[in-house]
Write a protein that binds this DNA or RNA. Structure first.
Length: 436
RNA sequence: GGGGGGGUUCCCGAGUGGACAAAGGGAACAGACUGUAAAUCUGUCGGCGAACGCCUUCGGUGGUUCGAAUCCACCCCCCCCCA
């Protein structure tokens, strides 16, 4: 990319106005570097599950912006470091994963990352739409597993080559360690920052990586890596962190009562994903528009100007854009339509989450409603389902159910489905279908 | 290795022989109010059951007792101090 088309710190500027910028090891130095050349930067992702969730979307978007500005992203799936467990931001010892779990998780995560970043490998992504960024030949992304260079490391050798550059005094002073000192920190976790620093060193050495980004809880680990690169490679490298997000009510980003909001459509349906964004707190809309969509600044500011009930329009735009990023524009449209159908009335409800049931169970006396509610996972137990009914929180085909012994029969089926509603906004369809 | 303090229901945290499915708070859920928001108010918040009730739970395993989250023994785990 030519000098002219790369304003001095367009990337940093975008991170700043969008709210990605928390702190940087050397802002001026990094800005100069970004202006001079195509910079290779990396972010690590923990394969703690087979899918990423909304919480990981922030760093992912960091890579997206990086690549959009012509720089080269590296995503590390931490197959090696996951063996150890990062103590940062955790209050207690993390459960160690087995090698098999980690490998299975890596496969899922890699495919998801490829939805966002162009790794130049067409077969990689499992998404219907392409990566949201199109890269040129010099800034295609790289996807690596740090197990490749960590797994076979010899302990003694590692201690001598890498360990001697670490000061325990300094490690103890890191916030990530300090906060854990009171509740306990195992030696294996204590080592995590060394491994992460080593990642940075390897990436710098082998891929010319000059920047590591991550959540602010990674600051200590990132600084360790910057130091290590300086010592071992005599290279000036940089670190930049994103803020740790909480919602306006103080909850962790991307968590709902039902658990995390996942990127995988199997774990969180596109409809539920869309609803997550529609239901965010008013106070979060502006930040989220900036962080989780690629809408341009002008459009976002327009949406931010909305007040009162009109904020819902901004939420819909947010939901539409975020869902389109993760599940593709078609899925986003379908989810939006389903939402209109359910909350406004009329229209296409086909993407409302549903469960197939054997039509035979609706014959005769039919199926107990309470049972249907637990079987579909809408309620954890029949007790909970019963409670809901007693409180007037259950509707079948838009009619409040007063009778907790209510049974569902074939006569409840309309348009090929029985429509269940819990509370004001949880919708689910029961679809009679022969089991295969 | 020695001494001290702990492990309670989703989380925090009371409870030290029966009235305990276990105070209180938070989270969560439902209802009212609203804008599929927030705040507020009300209710619910282990499982089964229409209900009387029954069953499972207080780190683990045994024991004492008519009866144990509460007492005893051993074990596991965590924190602090000393070595």
């Amino acid at each position: 990319m030519s000098e002219a088309s790369r304003p001095r710190d367009a990337f940093l500027e975008e991170l700043r106005w969008r709210g990605f910028f928390q702190q940087c090891t050397d802002e001026a130095g990094l800005a100069d570097l970004l202006a001079r050349e195509t910079v290779t930067a990396y972010i690590g992702f923990d394969p703690t599950a087979d899918s990423l969730h909304v919480g990981s979307m922030l760093p992912i978007m960091g890579l997206v912006h990086l690549q959009r500005h012509g720089h080269k992203p590296i995503a590390i799936a931490g197959g090696g470091t996951a063996m150890v467990g990062d103590p940062s931001g955790k209050t207690e010892l993390r459960q160690l994963l087995t090698v098999e779990q980690i490998e299975a998780n890596l496969r899922g995560i890699k495919a998801q990352l490829a939805r966002f970043v162009d790794f130049g490998e067409p077969g990689l992504a499992d998404l219907p739409h392409g990566p949201v960024v199109q890269a040129g030949p010099d800034n295609r992304g790289i996807l690596l597993n740090n197990a490749d260079w960590l797994a076979d490391k010899n302990y003694i050798e590692f201690l001598r080559d890498v360990g001697r550059h670490f000061s325990v005094n300094q490690m103890l002073a890191r916030d990530s360690v300090k906060t854990r000192l009171e509740v306990g920190l195992s030696f294996i976790e204590f080592n995590y920052m060394i491994l992460q620093a080593y990642d940075f060193y390897v990436l710098n050495r082998d891929h010319g990586c000059r920047l590591q980004m991550g959540g602010n809880d990674q600051w200590g680990n990132i600084c360790s890596g910057v130091d290590l690169c300086r010592r071992l490679n005599q290279q000036e490298v940089y670190g930049l962190t994103f803020p740790l997000l909480a919602t306006a009510t103080g909850a962790k980003m991307g968590k709902t009562a039902a658990g995390a909001v996942w990127i995988s459509p199997e774990r969180t349906s596109p409809y539920d994903f869309f609803q997550y964004w529609v239901n965010v707190d008013d106070r979060d809309v502006s930040r989220f528009l900036r962080l989780y969509t690629l809408l341009d600044r002008e459009r976002i500011e327009e949406l931010e100007a909305l007040e009162g009930a009109d904020i819902r329009e901004a939420k819909r735009a947010l939901a539409r854009a975020a869902t389109a990023l993760v599940h593709g524009p078609e899925a986003a449209d379908a989810a939006a339509k389903a939402a209109v159908a359910l909350f406004v009335g009329g229209g296409d409800e086909s993407t409302v989450p549903g469960t197939a049931i054997d039509p035979g169970r609706l014959a005769g006396a039919g199926l107990e409603l309470l049972e249907a509610l637990t079987e579909t996972g809408l309620c954890k137990s029949k007790g909970e389902a019963r409670r809901l009914v007693r409180q007037g929180g259950v509707k079948v085909n838009d009619a409040v159910v007063a009778d907790e012994t209510r049974r569902l029969t074939a006569s409840d089926v309309a348009d090929g489905r029985i429509r269940l509603q819990l509370g004001k906004k949880r919708h689910h369809h029961l679809v009679p279908r022969e089991a295969p």
